[in-house]
Design a protein around this nucleic acid. Structure first.
Lengths: 212, 212
DNA sequence: GTAAACAGACCGACTGGTCGGTATGAATCT
DNA sequence: AGATTCATACCGACCAGTCGGTCTGTTTAC
């Protein structure tokens, strides 16, 4: 804790405090003292406590959105695109757990301008997923009796909820969890025909060991 | 808003305000004025703002837990038990949406004693679900390659997340959504053998219309 | 009549944000 | 090269408003 520039240090400590006590459970003074700086230092780097909250949100959603787009561009079938997106998202928990917690717990408190910007990116992410599902349905890979919108919300819910229970030192690695998620998803979304394709098999759980 | 006893009126308005602005975005004065009472009236019914938050949590989790137990007792196969639980839970959104939002958004701010009590019931709920899944696995109805714990968290995540997007005046009724959830769940959890059983079919989506 | 239910003025701790000031180092002048 | 100017990063005492909670009444119910 020396050469890192102040801004990062502030964000880091704020993140940990927010994760534990929530945005409103943490005062600027606490952040300041715990990151070894001052009120001046804080307000030199951020216009307000709100802006800090926004900053945290933005770092996370921007990163995730970019990863999802990469996955979409780098793969060419709906199934592999979906699996890649889920995998990339789930893996983020290792790195960004505090960000994610703050993102889903405290977004209510984002004010006007900030709120709009974040929501826009959030929607882009959702729409990307909907596109993948729709394209999969058109190609006959995903079952069409399930509305794409609901599927997507179900998927997002399942994956996002991980922030409530995932522990880095738990019995399963985040990669194993991602694998399970993909297995569950494919079973619930795929048509029978698609289920038997060669490509799909690699994403399913065989009886391989999951534990570390 | 006349003969209802004050406590309910306070809870009702608090709930709506909390849902919109979050627990910390609402002051006791706001609650008091919007529910047409006074500080005295409020603190006569609640020891503190914290206690109000606890009260809201407790009403909801107690209700849901009871419903889940009823479902578990009234049905006798894991599949029907699971579906009944999901259905009962999902239906609660029509009635308790604000409660649920507060429950998942603000539980960070429950203090000591209150926190413990709520967590206990939350765990009971989770354990009930784990039991259902385990029993289903033992009977060969649910696939055993998926760890029960993870399945349960995935289920809970999928269902709970509904509070983030469900709108009463949306295109789908909550019953339809519950049906979709059950369909997705069964497809992802059931063994092939169980999938073909007569009983299961009634829980799946046929090509029946979902919209209102 | 008396006890519970409610009203509302008031308190005081806390918190986000400000503001005058300093320290450091790069750019400019002579 | 050395002196001067200026911009940037950071400090910390202080302030003004806010908000949960209290206290002293007054009203209502039985």
């Amino acid at each position: 804790m020396k050469k890192t520039n102040l801004k990062e240090r502030i964000v880091e400590t704020a993140l940990n405090l927010f994760e534990q006590h929530g945005y409103h459970g943490v005062t600027v003074d606490q952040i300041v003292s715990e990151s070894g700086t001052s009120k001046g230092g804080f307000y030199h780097n951020f216009k307000s406590k709100d802006e800090l909250l926004y900053y945290i949100h933005d770092v996370f959603i921007s990163y995730v959105l970019e990863k999802a787009r990469e996955a979409y561009d780098n793969y060419d079938t709906p199934v592999s695109q979906l699996c890649a997106i889920i995998q990339s998202f789930t893996k983020v928990f290792d790195l960004y757990k505090p960000h994610i917690t703050v993102f889903y717990q405290e977004s209510t408190y984002l004010t006007g301008e900030f709120n709009l910007k974040i929501n826009k990116k959030r929607d882009e992410y959702k729409n990307l997923l909907i596109t993948v599902i729709r394209e999969g349905q058109q190609k006959g890979e995903f079952r069409s009796e399930v509305p794409a919108q609901i599927s997507v919300m179900a998927i997002i819910g399942m994956v996002n909820w991980t922030y409530k229970w995932f522990k880095k030192d738990g019995p399963l690695t985040i990669e194993a969890i991602a694998q399970i998620f993909n297995d569950l998803l494919l079973h619930s979304l795929l048509t029978e025909k698609a289920m038997n394709q060669q490509e799909v098999q690699s994403f399913l759980l065989k009886s391989q060991p999951l534990h570390k």
